[in-house]
Amino acid sequence: MDSIATLAGRLFADGLNLDGVVRGVREANPDLKTVTGAMAAVMAEDPFREGAGFDLHLVDGNNHCWLITDKPDLATGIVIAQRDEDE
């Protein structure tokens, strides 16, 4: 998670938009089943980790539907949730 948070933070700081950050994280972590983006305002769950302007949520995709989890050992992916500048 530390390397993902660092990479996402660097990509946002470099000026990439959310789609570009998701693409960069996905390319750097091909073992993750799910890497997707969202706006933080639509996420009802508390983030697993907070970065500068974004949150990371863990995804458990081991069953039919994927769920947001706070258990890293169950995580198969992440949601990168970009926060509005006002948040």
Rank of each mutant, 00 (worst) to 15 (best):
L7W: 06
I4A: 12
A44G: 06
R10G: 12
A5F: 03
D46Y: 00
D70V: 10
D60F: 05
A5K: 15
R26Y: 09
N62L: 11
D2I: 12
D86P: 00
T6L: 08
R10C: 02
G61N: 14
I78C: 10
D31I: 02
F48H: 15
P47R: 07
G51P: 13
N62D: 01
L32C: 09
E50V: 12
A40V: 04
V42L: 04
A8Y: 06
A8M: 05
L67Y: 06
R83L: 01
H57F: 12
A52K: 13
A5T: 13
G20Y: 08
D55Y: 00
D60E: 08
R26D: 14
E85H: 04
F54D: 00
N62G: 15
E45Y: 00
S3Q: 03
I4Y: 09
A13C: 06
G9I: 09
G51L: 05
E27A: 15
A44F: 05
V25I: 13
S3Y: 06
I80A: 05
M39C: 01
L67V: 01
L32Y: 08
E87R: 01
E27S: 15
D73P: 01
L74R: 04
M1N: 09
E45R: 02
D14V: 00
I4P: 08
G51I: 11
N62K: 12
A81Y: 00
L58T: 05
N29Y: 04
M39D: 03
L18N: 02
L74Q: 11
F54V: 02
K71N: 15
E45A: 15
D2Y: 02
K71S: 09
G37L: 07
P47D: 06
N62V: 01
D19Q: 11
K33S: 14
G53S: 10
T36C: 12
G53I: 10
E85Q: 05
H57Y: 14
L18Q: 04
T76M: 04
F12S: 06
R10M: 07
P72L: 14
R83Q: 07
L67W: 00
V25C: 13
A44I: 09
I80L: 15
D86Q: 08
R26P: 11
H57E: 02
R10T: 08
V25Y: 06
M39Q: 05
Q82G: 01
M39W: 02
E27L: 14
D46A: 14
D70S: 14
P30F: 03
N29R: 11
V21W: 05
A38Q: 04
L11R: 15
L7E: 10
L32K: 12
D60S: 07
I68S: 08
A75T: 09
V25T: 11
T34L: 13
D60T: 03
N17H: 11
K33R: 15
E87I: 06
D70T: 14
L7H: 07
L67A: 04
T69A: 09
R10S: 11
D19N: 15
I78A: 08
V21Y: 01
P47T: 04
N17A: 01
L11W: 01
E45N: 12
L74Y: 03
N29L: 07
